[in-house]
Design a protein around this nucleic acid. Structure first.
Lengths: 169, 169
DNA sequence: CATCTGAGTTTACTTTTCTATACCCAGCCA
DNA sequence: TGGCTGGGTATAGAAAAGTAAACTCAGATG
């Protein structure tokens, strides 16, 4: 143990327990997609919906929340608002996913897969995901930059460049 | 288009918009881990906390909510309650992660990684994840059973064995 | 026997989030 | 001109979450 760590411990400060947890990528992601309906809206976008009325019909979620979530997702750059025009109707907005939104796919695949394993119906999942092209089943997995498949228990978490202690009260 | 699909469409029923979305693995997973604090508690378990007082100190979350979430996580089999004994103190409960809880790691790695990419501090993330053993950085990625790395846009979602339409009102 | 500690429970109050329903508005159409 | 449709707002009430402090309980210590 180095001198700094020792001095901290003498002061009752423990890096693990007294770190600044607001400065955490998980917490920040949850601030964006952690509200009710948000991830379910994204799921519907992946499954092919793009219009306000489609989201409302398939999700059955309150209209004001739907409007608020869509507005937030556009502000965050996860969805982009474009316009569409049905013949005989005026132009209306539709919502399409951006690359930033696509980058949420691994996280949502992880949630999907856990539900498939632990709470699917006896006959199996309601939806299947396969690789367009080879047709094989896809899933989220953890790999290291050396290309090894990594078991969850073999992940080591260490303080990174922006590690901070919580400001003392 | 087959005759059944055609008949459904004539009745104004669209499998994509009128499917039973409560029968969805993503929604079911969110019912378990979608409440505030739940994923943050699991994060702390991965980072090495196990005691009530540790969670309270590092999360700063209300004690009644912490107690409720811990109870729920144990009921769901994501954490298991064991006992520990400090010398000179009586036995007290501690919370350890189960294999079912470990299976949430890919989902949480996905959230972590998205936050690292889009909302980390300029100098980098607060925590780094590396492969114990080779030391290389780890991340969540999508692969198919043929071993191909899969881009999000190459995932095809198709109805599975438990696909159901929403019951008509 | 009184006191301390960790792990809660209970109660009371405030704030935020969610739900339900009603209402509004622009443009197309008869 | 009046109704229809898609995409919203507005508002009111219910539920959940957050805050704060008091209380409990069992066993170890003085």
């Amino acid at each position: 143990m180095d001198a700094t760590t020792e001095a901290l411990q003498d002061a009752g400060v423990d890096p693990r327990l007294d770190r600044d947890t607001s400065n955490c990528s998980i917490a920040r992601t949850l601030e964006v997609v952690g509200e009710k309906w948000t991830i379910l809206i994204l799921r519907e976008v992946w499954y092919g919906s793009s219009r306000f009325s489609e989201f409302e019909r398939v999700l059955g979620c309150p209209r004001n929340l739907l409007a608020a979530r869509l507005r937030m997702l556009v502000e965050e750059g996860i969805l982009a608002a474009e316009t569409y025009k049905e013949p005989g109707s005026r132009s209306r907005p539709k919502y399409v996913i951006t690359p930033k939104g696509m980058d949420l796919v691994p996280a949502v695949m992880g949630l999907l897969q856990w539900g498939d394993r632990y709470s699917a119906d006896p006959e199996g999942p309601a939806m299947l995901s396969r690789h367009r092209g080879c047709g094989a089943h896809v899933d989220a997995q953890i790999r290291c930059d050396q290309g090894h498949a990594v078991q969850p228990e073999d992940i080591e978490s260490i303080p990174g460049p922006a590690f901070r202690l919580r400001p003392a009260e």
